[in-house]
Design a protein around this nucleic acid. Structure first.
Lengths: 240, 240
DNA sequence: GATCGATGCGTATGAGATACGCTAATTAAG
DNA sequence: CTTAATTAGCGTATCTCATACGCATCGATC
């Protein structure tokens, strides 16, 4: 179904030169406006509510006009995703890799919290666009500067990124439905899941400081692991 | 759209008693058969190919017959997800928490590798069913037995689970399209993403042992972080 | 002002989910 | 053995969507 996502996401990177004015009706619509409208709908009401009709209504145009600017809906969603990833202020420089990756993770989190519909898309198979590549490149630079090899740097980025993507899941759910444990009300659940039962009985779920910041708690664990790796990794020249 | 997912996923936990034989036409179809057929289609061709018609054809029945056993498609997908999570051999006992969580993570990975369509669903907002609750409870038990408080145990599980879910993403993608870095062929990409460029130039991506097992590498980092936490955490009674 | 090339978009098509209501198959009651 | 009760199977009709096709329109260029 997805034809040339690569061309779709990257073709505009080079500004087309040498065409000052072309013949033909000037376009009131644009790919950017369509993507923006679709994203606004998704942000407000979920990806489920994004339909070509709904977008057209929002832009006050005919449905089929959209197809002059976007190949199809799948491609539009891919564009929405990458545009969303690009929609964040650039990160500053950091002296310390750990501060840098902490900031990186928090920035990514902010992004996904603002656009909850994007997280499942991140998990689905997709082509990387410029918006997403920015984050990868930035994080790669952080680890490369600590002296890690390129492949290990990538593995480190994948680890942090993996944690962030996964840990966001319950967080985004929590915003809509704080009752992750509603199922424990079921009479059969208590005996089948004694540890969950114990957790609920302990009472302190709601106001546990660790759980309140479980994202940063887990992030800290990952960074701790990386710190240990970086400190103890075999170095080419041995100890100075 | 999702009505009573809670009842849907949990109602069958208690076997209904006291009804030996009921009147009415006996059912050839069953919820289980429908879920199994739908899962088989999704495993083979992706969730996109699962339609009520396709399922009905596979089961050699009419489309509307399915609705006698499943409230609707969204609910069917929820059932598929939870049934998939329940479709794994139970984990053995482990003496060491680290061995246990390593096995846990690898088991979850095996599950998602067998059913790639399930991972985006895990990321989407959903109600926990008995299949998923099993994994949560098991992991919670592991940490609780190390003496961690219930809330911290949950945070630890969320951290490992987060890592696993997130790290699986590129892995599942890699199976279908090993060219995660195809975008770097773009002329504009090299200068905009120098660190990715350097990574590619380093050449050793394909046969880097770290990247080959990047899942376990990252998992090790998370467990290292947890180990350090467990060893240095403040204990109620002080040092023995 | 005629032509060209792109945009805007109405209409038609086909897929997919599902509400409704009828039919069929059993069991239980008379 | 009827007959009523109850539940499964499912054809048809509808509604929502994505999208192919082709015509109309608009400006720039010649």
């Amino acid at each position: 179904m997805a034809g040339d996502m690569y061309g779709l996401l990257w073709e505009r990177e080079l500004p087309v030169e040498g065409r000052g004015r072309r013949p033909g009706r000037p376009s009131g619509l644009s790919r950017e406006r369509i993507v923006a409208e679709a994203t606004a709908i998704a942000d407000a009401e979920g990806l489920h509510q994004v339909s070509m009709k709904r977008i057209a209504d929002g832009l006050d145009c005919g449905v089929m006009s959209l197809y002059r600017h976007v190949p199809g809906k799948d491609e539009l969603v891919a564009l929405m995703y990458d545009a969303t990833m690009a929609d964040a202020p650039p990160l500053p420089e950091f002296a310390d890799w750990r501060d840098a990756m902490h900031a990186w993770a928090m920035a990514v989190r902010t992004l996904f919290r603002a656009h909850p519909w994007a997280l499942p898309l991140a998990t689905a198979n997709h082509m990387m666009g410029p918006g997403e590549a920015y984050w990868l490149d930035w994080a790669l630079g952080v680890f490369t500067r600590t002296g890690l090899d390129a492949d290990v740097s990538l593995a480190a980025v994948l680890a942090v990124n993996g944690y962030v993507g996964g840990a966001l899941r319950p967080e985004l759910q929590g915003q809509d439905d704080p009752q992750w444990f509603r199922f424990m009300r079921h009479p059969a659940a208590a005996e089948r899941f004694p540890n969950v039962q114990r957790l609920i009985d302990s009472g302190g779920i709601a106001d546990s400081p660790v759980l309140k910041d479980s994202f940063e708690f887990g992030l800290g664990l990952v960074l701790d692991g990386l710190e240990r790796y970086i400190e103890t990794r075999p170095r080419p020249g041995g100890e100075p």
